[in-house]
Design a protein around this nucleic acid. Structure first.
Lengths: 202, 202, 202, 202
DNA sequence: AATGAATGAGGCTTCATTCAT
DNA sequence: GATGAATGAAGCCTCATTCAT
C-alpha cells in the first residue's frame, strides 16, 4: 500500500499500536466525547505531543483504529471461510465469527457499536470506506450463493447485503446496550438461519 | 396526560412546532454539531431566548423532535395496519410506510439516520426509549404471525425484531448516504419478502 | 420631598409595599443573585410587567427597599431616644434597638447583612447615601456626649462613629452567619459598655 | 503539606502569582462583575486557557487570591508581634500593620473592602474560612490580655473580637470609599486607643 | 524522538426589560 | 392599570494542536 506524502510508515513502531489500543480502552471507558487526546496519551503512557508523531490529528487515530481492527476482522473471517464450500456455510460462519470476535473484545464492541457512531458525518463517511471491504466480502458470498443456485436467482444482492449487515449490526448493538449480559455467539445459528431462509429458493 | 410540574403544556402553541421544524431543517442542512441554538432560532424566526420558553435546553429540543416525529410515525402506521388481517400483510405495510414516510421528508431522513446518532450516549438512551414503542409494534405483528401459524412457532421474537429493524434501518441509511438518489419505497416489497421468508414455516 | 420628574408618587399605593416586602422575602430565601424580577413578581402576586409600573428598574426596588426599611429604622430609634437625657443612655438604646429590630425581622437581617452586599458598587454607593442619616444620628449622640463631657473632648467623632457602626454591624453579621441561633439583643448591654468605655474620660 | 489529588503544586510557578496579581489589578480597576476571565488573562499576559492550568475555575482564582494575600498578611503580623510583650502593644501593632499594609497596596484595599464582597454567598463563606485565622490571632491577643490582667476578666472574647475587627474593617472601608484621600495609618493609634479603653479594667 | 506548557476559538443559557393586548 | 410572551446581550470553560526545549 502506498503511503501518502509526508505520512511516514509508523505502522511498524510499537507506539503506533500502543496508542490505538489506548484509544479503544479510553473511549470504551469514558465515552467518545470524554476521550480527549490527553487522556488517550496518558493511557498509552506517552506525552500528548507524541501522539502527533504517529497520527496526523485526532480523527486520524480513530480512522486508523477502525482500519486496524476492521482489517484484522476481515482477514480472520477470510481465513475461516477458506475451507468452506457452500455459501450457506460461509454466511453462517461469518455471522458466528462476527459475534465471537466482538464478544471476545468487549471494549472494542462498545467502541464500534456505540461510541464511534457519535463522530461527525465526515469521520463516519471515512469509516464507511473501511467498512466497504467487509461489505464486499458479504457480496461475494451472496453472489456465490446465487451462482451455485443455493439462493434464488432473483436475489437483489445490495438489499440482501443490507439485510445481513443490518441484522448483524442491530443484534450486536442490542447486546451491547443490554450490557452484554447474554451469550451473543449462541445467537449466531438462529440469526444465520433466518437470513438464509430469506434468500433461499422457494 | 398529566404534565410534569414546571413543564407547562406548550405542545399546542404554534411556536413549539415551529421550533421543532426549524431544528430538523437546521440539523439536516448544517449537521448535528453545527446546529447551534442560535441557528435554530434564526431558522424558526424567533429570538434565541424564546427557545427556552418552550424547551428546557438544547437536548430537550432534540428529544421532543424525536418524540413528535416518531409519535406520529407510529400512529400513522398503526392506523394503516388497522384494516389488515394477516401478519404478512401488516409487515409489508410497515416496511412500505416506513420507507414512504422518510422518502417524503428527506430532511427528517437525514436527521434520524445520520445526524441524531452523533448525539451523546445519554441523549441516545432517551431516543431509544421513544423507539421502544415502534419496536413493540413490530413485536405484536410477529406474535400475531406466530399465533396464526403464518410464522414458524420456534421463531425467536427478539431476534426477528432485530432483523426487521436492522434491515429497515440499514436500508434507509444506505439510501440516505447515497444521497437519496434512488426510489426507496420501491424496495419495500422485496425487503418485506426477504424478511417474511426468513420467518415462514418451511 | 420632591419627586423626580416622570417618577409619580407610588409610595401610597398598596402594591408598592407589597412588592418591596416580596423582594425582602425572595432575596432572603433565594439569595441576592437568585432573586430574579420574575420571582419577586410571583411572590408579590403580580405580573412581571407590573413591577415596572412602580419601580424604574430592579435596582430601584432594592434602593427603595433599603430606603423604606432604613427610614422606619431611623425613625423608630429617634422616637426611642427622645425621652433620654445622657449620651450614654442614648448610645445603649441605639445598640439595643438596632439589635432588637433585626432580631424581630430575620428575613430583613439576612437581606441587609449578607445579600444586599453582593450588589454592585454603584448600588452600594446609593445604599450608603441612605445609611448616612443613620450615621448622622450616631454623630449627634457623640457630639452631645462630648459637649456634656460624658466623652473625652479629644474624641475623634468620625473614628468613634466608625467604631460604633463597625462593631454593631460586625456583631449582627456574625449572628446572621451563625444562623441567628443565639439571643442577639441580649448582647446589647455588653457591646454598649465596651463602646462607652472606649469613649469615656480616663 | 499534602496536596489534593489532581491539584498539583502550582504555587511555586511564577505564572500562578502573575495571574493572582493580574486579578487584583483587574478587579480593582473594573469592579468585580466587570472582571471577566478574559480581562484577567490579558492583564496577566497569558491566554485565557492558561488560567485554567493554574486554577480550577474563576472562583478558585478569587479564593486563592484571598488565601495568598491574607496568608502573608497574617504571617507578617505574627512576625511583628513576636517581639512585643503586652497585649496592648500587640493590639496597637495589629491595627497599625493592618492599616499600613492596605495603605501600601491600594488596589488590594479596593478589592478586599469593596469588590470581593460582591461575590456570592458560597464564595464569601470560603473567604470567611480564610479570615478565621486572622480572627484567631485577635482572640489570642485578647486572651493574653485577660490572663495578664491588662483587660478585665469579664471580657467577652467573641464580642471584643467583633468590635476590633468591625472597627478596623469599617475604618478601612470608609477610607477606601473616600478614595483613600487621607492618611489611614495615622489613625491607628487613636483607633487602638479607643479599643483598648473598651477592654481595660475600670 | 519525546515532552508538556501554552494557546484561543466557540456556544449554551439567563434574565432584566418592553410593549401589544 | 395590569398582563406575560418575547427579546437578545454577554461570559466561562474545554480541548485539539503547536513548538521550544
Amino acid at each position: 500500500m502506498k503511503e501518502r506524502e509526508g505520512q511516514p510508515v509508523k505502522r511498524n513502531k510499537p507506539k503506533y499500536h500502543q496508542i490505538i489500543d489506548a484509544a479503544v480502552v479510553t473511549i470504551a471507558e469514558n465515552g467518545y466525547h470524554q476521550a480527549q487526546v490527553a487522556k488517550i496519551a496518558k493511557q498509552a503512557g506517552v506525552a500528548d505531543g507524541t501522539i502527533y508523531l504517529y497520527f496526523k490529528n485526532k480523527e486520524d487515530i480513530l480512522i486508523s483504529l477502525f482500519q486496524e481492527k476492521m482489517g484484522s476482522f476481515v482477514k480472520k473471517i477470510q481465513e475461516a471461510l477458506a475451507g468452506k464450500n457452500t455459501a450457506a456455510e460461509k454466511l453462517l460462519l461469518l455471522v458466528e465469527h462476527h459475534f465471537t470476535m466482538l464478544a471476545e473484545d468487549k471494549h472494542l464492541a462498545v467502541v464500534t457499536q456505540l461510541e464511534l457512531r457519535q463522530s461527525n458525518k465526515e469521520l463516519r463517511m471515512k469509516i464507511n470506506e473501511v467498512l466497504k471491504h467487509y461489505l464486499q466480502l458479504i457480496d461475494e458470498i451472496l453472489k456465490e450463493g446465487v451462482e451455485k443456485k443455493e439462493f434464488r436467482s432473483s436475489l437483489n444482492i445490495q438489499l440482501a447485503r443490507q439485510m445481513i449487515f443490518g441484522t448483524i449490526d442491530e443484534t450486536v448493538t442490542t447486546w451491547v446496550m443490554n450490557e452484554q449480559k447474554y451469550d451473543l455467539p449462541a445467537l449466531a445459528p438462529e440469526v444465520g438461519d433466518m437470513l438464509l431462509n430469506g434468500f433461499s429458493v422457494h
